[in-house]
Each structure stands twice: as structure tokens, then as C-alpha cells.
Design a protein around this nucleic acid. Structure first.
Lengths: 107, 107
DNA sequence: TCAACCCATAACCCAAAGGTGATGTATTGG
DNA sequence: CCAATACATCACCTTTGGGTTATGGGTTGA
């Protein structure tokens, strides 16, 4: 089993990166320049963040002429969803087991 | 709208903390000492991580005599689940809108 | 009571991460 | 063809974060 969620959590842990990803999800494809305009940080910072998001599979970077178009890949969130569900399931599984135990003890 | 997921992503971004949280979800309540035994880091490090997890609401610390019992609170993952769903919904919403546009253009 | 135990806190170190400005490299409009 | 544009990369700085050892404060068994 891979440590798939690791890169995801790490990438989305930074508020600037989360904001970039959110903007792309909400508003669709945008260029690096457009993202930089509202990011509140410099263009190199945005480029670096986008590279990290791209590395985690969360963003696709598509160079096109002299601009680079960026689009979100929300499918990449799947391992994260799976992980949270797994954690909750473990928890509820243990509760069920406890419940069974109590029931058997009652008899 | 609060930025609730921020603390969650940050907390779970560290592999050691993720492992602690996972252990508590899988195996239920444990003392700090028991967690330290397999954490691969020192006891102070574990205590610090647990404090962070507790701050994010992911873990409940219950001092009891001279031990401190720790249990996971998977309910705290809810904002994370909501956020991922929101991001996916935005994405699909935009796809639907695009679909509608195409349909209308076809006519 | 007192020694052993469990844990939190303090003080500190070091690597990693996020930020910047400067610069390089294609690309394109005029 | 040349100047401007868009972005990546470089070199560097500062802060943050995770790690450690040392220590202190409560709790408990002997």
C-alpha cells in the first residue's frame, strides 16, 4: 500500500496552494499570470506552488505558446477521500465490535 | 466561511502525526507511552504531535492518574470530507454548465 | 514516604519550506 | 527583426517545524 495521501496532505496543507487549487476548481482553467494577479505572492512563488501541486497530480500544467494554462484535477482527491473513509470505517468497526461484545456479555 | 480545513490539512500533512492518528483509529484508545513505543521518535516529540492533533480536534487527550489516554475523533474529519466534495462539485458543476452550453449551441 | 514512573515543558539545533529579486528563455505582436 | 510578454529558474534569505536532551511536576506502588 502506497503512501498516496502523503503528498496530497502536504500539498494542500499550505494555504496559498489550497487557494490556488480552489480557484482552479471554482473558476476553471487559468494562466499562471491570472493566478499570480490575486495570489498575494510573487510570480516565482506561484510557479513553485503550481509545480508542487502538479507533482501531487492535483493540477495539470499545459504550456501553450508563451502562456501556461493550469487546470485542476479533482480526481486526484480520490485517495484523500478513501483515506478519510477508511479512518471513519475503522472507528465505526471498532464501535460495532464493542457493541457485539456488550450484547454477548448481556446474554 | 471559515477556513476550517486548514488545521486539518496541516496536522495530517506530517507523516508521524498521520501515523499516530491512524493507530488510534485502527486500534482505539492508547496511552502516550504506548504510542511512543512504536512512533520511532522520542516521547516529547509524540507529546508535541498529540498536542497539535488535539488542537485540530482530531484527538482527545484525557489525563487519568499519571497516564494520558488518547483517542481519535474521526468526526473531526468532516470538514475535510465536505471540502473535497465541494471542490469536486465545483468541477462537475462547471462541466455540466459546459455541457448545457454545447447542447444549446447544437440547436 | 519515597522512589519510580508517566508525561509535559523548556531550551536548543538543524533542515526544510516559503518568500523575494534578479536573470534566462521562449514566444509573439508590431 | 526587435521589444515586450509570460513564465521558469537561480541564488539567496528568513522563518517554521520537527527533532533532540534535560528537567520539572504530578501520581502511584512498595
Amino acid at each position: 500500500m502506497v503512501r498516496a495521501p502523503d503528498d496530497l496532505f502536504r500539498s494542500l496543507g499550505d494555504p496559498t496552494r489550497r487557494a490556488l487549487f480552489e480557484a482552479l476548481c471554482r473558476e476553471g482553467e487559468q494562466t499562471v499570470g491570472a493566478l499570480t494577479a490575486r495570489a498575494g505572492v510573487s510570480q516565482p512563488a506561484v510557479s513553485k506552488h503550481l509545480a508542487i501541486l502538479s507533482g501531487a497530480g492535483l493540477v495539470e500544467l499545459r504550456p501553450e505558446g508563451r502562456v501556461t494554462r493550469c487546470r485542476a484535477r479533482p480526481e486526484a482527491l480520490a485517495p484523500l477521500r478513501d483515506w478519510t473513509r477508511e479512518m471513519t470505517d475503522f472507528w465505526e468497526g471498532r464501535l460495532d465490535a464493542l457493541d457485539d461484545l456488550m450484547t454477548r456479555m448481556d446474554q
